[in-house]
Deep mutational scan, measured.
Amino acid sequence: IDAAQIVDEALEQGITLFVVNNRLQYETSRDSIPTELLNKWKQHKQELIDFLNQLD
């Protein structure tokens, strides 16, 4: 699994991931984030931050 897949998966569930001051953040209108997704974010945090920083 790679960062792009995780970002896409989040988007499919209505969650936008982004980076502020090198910290992973998210925006969503959902009430809660699925635990499975949160765990993936934690496991791949640095990859996600690097990936999202490249997009900007």
Rank of each mutant, 00 (worst) to 15 (best):
D8V: 13
N53E: 07
K40I: 08
K40D: 03
V7H: 04
E36P: 06
R23C: 15
D50F: 09
I15M: 02
A4Y: 06
S29P: 06
L37V: 04
I49K: 03
L55R: 15
I33K: 01
V20Q: 11
A10L: 03
A10R: 01
A10E: 00
T28K: 03
D31I: 09
L24M: 03
N22I: 10
L48M: 03
L48H: 00
A3S: 04
D8E: 15
Y26H: 04
K45H: 13
E27T: 13
K45L: 15
Q46D: 10
N39R: 11
T35Q: 13
S32D: 08
R23T: 15
E36T: 08
L11G: 04
T28Y: 05
L24W: 01
F18Q: 10
N21I: 03
I1R: 07
Y26A: 06
V19G: 01
P34H: 03
V20T: 07
A10M: 03
I6G: 00
W41F: 15
I6P: 00
L52I: 07
G14F: 05
L38K: 06
D8T: 14
Q13A: 14
I49R: 02
A4W: 08
N21Q: 08
I15P: 00
N22Q: 06
V19I: 06
K45S: 14
D2W: 11
K42Y: 14
G14H: 05
T35D: 12
V19S: 04
P34D: 05
T16H: 15
V20I: 11
Q43L: 13
Q5D: 08
D8N: 15
K45P: 04
Q43R: 10
N22D: 08
H44V: 06
Q5I: 09
E12R: 15
W41E: 00
I15A: 03
E36L: 06
S29A: 12
R23S: 15
D50I: 10
N22F: 05
E36Y: 13
N21A: 07
Q43D: 09
N22S: 06
P34K: 04
A10F: 06
T35N: 11
F51M: 03
E47F: 07
Q54E: 10
E9W: 05
N22Y: 05
R23I: 15
V7M: 05
Q54H: 11
V7A: 03
L38H: 04
E47H: 07
N53P: 03
I33T: 03
H44M: 06
Q54I: 09
D56Y: 11
R30D: 05
Q54Y: 10
S32M: 08
I1N: 09
S29T: 11
Q25R: 12
I15S: 01
D31Q: 12
N22R: 04
F18V: 13
Q25E: 13
L17G: 00
E47D: 08
V20S: 09
F51V: 02
T28S: 10
T28H: 06
A10C: 05
I6N: 01
V19K: 01
S32P: 11
D31V: 10
K42F: 14
W41R: 00
N39V: 11
L55V: 10
L17W: 01
I1G: 08
S32K: 08
G14P: 00
L24F: 03
T28G: 05
Y26S: 03
D8C: 15
L52R: 00
Q46F: 07
E47T: 08
L55Q: 12
I33N: 02
G14T: 02
N39I: 12
N53H: 07
T28I: 03
F51K: 01
I49E: 04
L52E: 00
W41P: 00
I33Y: 02
Y26T: 03
E12G: 11
T35H: 10
L38V: 08
K42L: 14
D56S: 12
E47S: 08
E36G: 07
Q13N: 12
F51N: 01
E36C: 06
E36D: 10
I1V: 13
L52T: 00
L52C: 02
K42N: 13
A10K: 01
Q43Y: 07
S29L: 11
A4G: 09
N53I: 13
D31S: 11
Q43A: 12
Q5T: 10
A3K: 02
F18E: 05
F18P: 02
I6R: 01
Q54N: 11
A10W: 02
A3F: 10
N22V: 05
I33V: 12
I33R: 01
K45D: 10
E36N: 09
S29Y: 09
D2R: 13
T16M: 11
G14Q: 05
A10Q: 00
E12H: 11
F18T: 12
S29F: 09
H44K: 04
T35S: 10
E36M: 07
D8H: 15
I33M: 04
W41I: 15
Q13H: 14
L11M: 12
Q43E: 13
T16S: 08
P34G: 04
L38M: 10
E27W: 15
F51P: 00
L17V: 02
R30W: 06
G14M: 04
Q5C: 08
L52F: 08
E12S: 13
S32H: 11
V19F: 03
I6H: 01
T16G: 04
D2F: 13
A4M: 09
V20K: 13
N39S: 10
Q13D: 03
Q46M: 07
V19N: 02
I1C: 12
R23P: 01
K40C: 12
Q54P: 06
D31T: 12
I49G: 01
N53Q: 10
Q25H: 15
L24G: 01
L38A: 05
Q25S: 09
V19R: 01
D2Y: 10
K45N: 14
I49A: 02
I6E: 02
E47K: 09
N53Y: 08
Y26E: 01
T28D: 02
Y26M: 06
Y26I: 07
E36F: 08
N53A: 09
L48G: 00
D50P: 02
A3C: 13
V7N: 03
S32A: 10
W41Y: 05
I33W: 03
D2I: 14
K45R: 10
